[in-house]
């Protein structure tokens, strides 16, 4: 008689403040998916523990949407194994109960009202949610006043919030979200962050993609960075920041020319501007590139030279720098964006 299969396969250790012994909501090993001659995912591994908010990030065509689609049961991997909430996902286009979310927008029906959309969804899930729960969910996401309006008049942000309400009504144990803050104003974004955080605290695993590093930094405990279908990084945000390597910094001093001379003398530091800064920047700004140690040295020397240091700041955040470094992208051309193709 074969040994009983463990309910969840929590096998990792306690790393960077994350309880790696917690049960795994998602366990993917060697997942590959090909569309015609395009490799969307290539031997991808992914672990997401319960109560964790896991970010997926990558440039266009990296395979984020495909991976989210696999988690939502929209596609079947060509090879590899995928376990969701302890259940191995086979060839059928379906995932276990307790999985909710959306990719490429919440995909609700424009001819139906907000209430009809949510009620139908709960009935399809066989949940028998009471009408007052639907009303409560709509009010919670700020859509109570338009509950009986057809969706065709809703803005993108309103649809996003309705999509989140739909996911919440299913009481998910794994929530998969594609750009959940897309189209939301700052207040709406904060609200969505609060909801996601509350879900994670209650034990729900959240996998979300976002092109906004500030969203990821605010919510995620771990991120996975994809490029051309492969995982190029997975770990905590603090670990990702260390991958940033040389970062471009803006230095504002009392004497730009003197500061440039000081910077030229520091090993591992490059001055990116010529004699004159571009018109788009202030006349006292200097753009340099180097690691954190070189930046420390620069500050010390500028102060020693009697120059006032008014500002020293990275041009892009360390997370974005890490993204650019790991994906081989340049800052001007390929920050992760919100218009990713469906693959």
């Amino acid at each position: 008689m074969p040994a009983a299969v463990p309910r969840f396969l929590g096998v990792r250790s306690f790393v960077d403040g994350i309880d790696m012994q917690a049960p795994l909501a998602v366990r993917a090993r060697g997942i590959s998916k090909t569309f015609a001659d395009v490799v969307a995912l290539d031997a991808v591994d992914l672990d997401v523990t319960e109560g964790e908010v896991h970010g997926l990030v990558g440039p266009n065509g990296a395979g984020k949407t495909t991976l989210l689609g696999l988690l939502l049961g929209l596609a079947v991997a060509d090879s590899g194994t995928l376990q969701i909430l302890g259940t191995r996902v086979g060839r059928a286009l379906a995932v276990p109960d307790g999985v909710a979310g959306f990719v490429d927008g919440p995909g609700l029906y424009p001819t139906l009202t907000a209430r009809q959309n949510l009620s139908a969804l709960t009935r399809l899930r066989g949940q028998g949610v009471a009408a007052r729960e639907v009303t409560g969910a709509l009010e919670q996401v700020g859509l109570g006043a338009v509950a009986d309006d057809a969706l065709r008049g809703f803005s993108l942000g309103m649809r996003q919030r309705l999509g989140l309400a739909a996911a919440l009504l299913t009481r998910p144990r794994l929530l998969v979200l594609d750009e959940p803050a897309n189209g939301l104003d700052p207040a709406g974004k904060n609200h969505v962050h609060g909801v996601i955080g509350a879900l994670a605290e209650s034990g729900t695993a959240v996998v979300m993609s976002s092109h906004r590093m500030d969203d990821l930094a605010a919510l995620c405990t771990e991120v996975t960075l994809l490029a051309t279908g492969r995982v190029v990084f997975t770990g905590t945000l603090s670990k990702l920041a260390l991958e940033s390597g040389e970062v471009d910094h803006k230095v504002v001093t009392t004497d730009r020319a003197a500061a440039a001379r000081v910077a030229h003398g520091i090993r591992g530091l490059r001055v990116l501007d010529g004699e004159e800064p571009p018109r788009s920047r202030g006349q006292s700004e200097l753009l340099v590139r180097g690691g954190l140690e070189a930046m420390d040295e620069l500050v010390v020397r500028l102060v020693a030279a009697g120059l006032g240091v008014r500002e020293l700041a990275p041009v892009v955040s360390p997370l974005e720098s890490a993204f650019l470094a790991l994906t081989g992208s340049s800052a001007g051309t390929s920050a992760p964006d919100d218009s990713e193709e469906s693959r």
Binding site: P96, D97, G98
Partner: peptide, 15 residues
């Protein structure tokens, strides 16, 4: 909503 009782599901049961 997030903390509402979650339906019990058998991991071995098919979706």
């Amino acid at each position: 909503l997030a903390a509402a009782p979650q339906p019990a599901s058998d991991p071995a049961a098919p979706p």
